[in-house]
Design a protein around this nucleic acid. Structure first.
Lengths: 233, 233
DNA sequence: ATATTCATTATGTATGCACATAAAATTCCT
DNA sequence: AGGAATTTTATGTGCATACATAATGAATAT
């Protein structure tokens, strides 16, 4: 058997992946080191390194200095969800986007929100409730608390013109964030806004963002029954 | 102002990210080309390339040959969900894992499943229903259809010993898959298995996997009310 | 025995150079 | 003018080389 001479990192990656799939190298196995592989494949070590690094990032391999490279035991599949701005999400479906401001007032957020943001009850936040529409139909219900101390410009914003989401994404890059996906029964207010029955199963997406150590905002987006978030694996 | 001489790709990436955050380069802006940046930072173009490639993969930059590199307009945040084997998910929480087989029979899957897998009604699949337990409490309800033609070994498997999930992950690497997240109201059977009220809002995860062109399996995992999937952004 | 030191080794990265390739910009042809 | 061919240019990649660094495992000292 002659070496095929794989001279691009893509080709090397493909070959390695094929061997993993073919079980030439089983999960947990140590695979040959970069120098040997380079020799076998007829390319530079740099090229092999690029390929293996890529496969490691994709979760197929686990690499540690000196310890070598081994096939990942559990193909910890990571699904990468794209979390777009809602407007773009709607327009990508070919629908007209609109949003309606339902409420906007200062207040003390509920405990769950405060603890998520790491704030005490003495700090009043801006509470914004809005509805996102696709071709006039409810697309998502937004419940948001914003720390106006971290985000000075926000208080002066006309939220009937521009959604909070859009402005924040454009103007306040966050350094850290948490995303929580869950299902929740529709509360009376949310149900009314979305036009569904109270208690209906809503797909719910909560996001908390910080700028360095300062909380920016907590949002909960509730989607009408039947909404699905799809991703390739 | 003197150039800081950034001589590692990490440092270059950090500096570029800082400039993006500082709005030196605003979303949509074209940033200097690699050669110029390398000159400015006092390193090789290769190093700048590595840094920019990294930031592009992370979603901060968009690069096109000849067109140059620009700051991503919408920081399309991608959240990477780790989809572990349920057993590990449970044990990671420090709980004892168990599973119970509820049903196992050949049959024709419902239309929704068939169309997802791209199969006609003439192909009988194996239907497996099981419950995953954490410390004896229901953790997730699994509804699965397996194509035993693609996965020959599966039919002979003793599913009371080993969960279908575990075996498939270990033995049938897939080449393509789809993941769908949604919320669904609990059906009577699922409600009973999970010990919740019928109609309760369940977080639901559907996965379809293929090996090349052949479908392997379709699964729906339903988690009890309150279940959350958390990820860092 | 048990800790400590140290050589070994596989991966990680920086660099200079060359060439490949996509796509924008320009020139040329009709 | 309008379209085709060509040049230009920024990114993409491969390679040889060198050195950095982490982790292992062996040798050594306590």
């Amino acid at each position: 058997m002659t070496a095929p001479v794989l001279t691009s990192w893509q080709a090397v990656a493909d070959e390695v992946l094929a061997r993993i799939r073919r079980r030439d190298w089983a999960p947990g196995d140590l695979i040959p080191n970069e120098v040997d592989l380079a020799g076998e494949m007829g390319c530079a070590r740099t090229t092999v390194n690029r390929a293996l690094r890529h496969l490691a990032e994709a979760g197929y391999l686990e690499r540690r200095r000196k310890a070598g490279t081994r096939v990942a035991l559990n193909p910890v599949r990571r699904a990468t969800l794209r979390i777009p701005v809602i407007r773009e999400e709607v327009e990508a479906r070919g629908a007209r986007y609109d949003h309606a401001l339902i409420r906007r007032e200062e207040g003390t957020p509920p405990l769950a929100v405060r603890s998520h943001l790491g704030l005490g009850p003495e700090r009043p936040l801006l509470h914004v409730v809005a509805l996102h529409l696709a071709d006039g139909a409810p697309y998502a219900h937004e419940d948001r608390w914003v720390d106006t101390e971290t985000v000075p410009g926000f208080a002066a914003l006309d939220l009937t013109q521009q959604s909070a989401n859009a402005w924040l994404v454009q103007n306040v890059p966050y350094t850290r964030g948490t995303l929580t996906l869950s299902a929740a029964a529709a509360g009376p207010e949310t149900a009314q806004a979305l036009g569904c029955a109270p208690g209906a199963a809503l797909f719910t997406l909560e996001r908390t963002t910080w700028k360095e150590a300062h909380p920016i905002t907590w949002v909960r987006l509730s989607y009408p029954p039947g909404h699905r978030l799809v991703t390739e694996l």
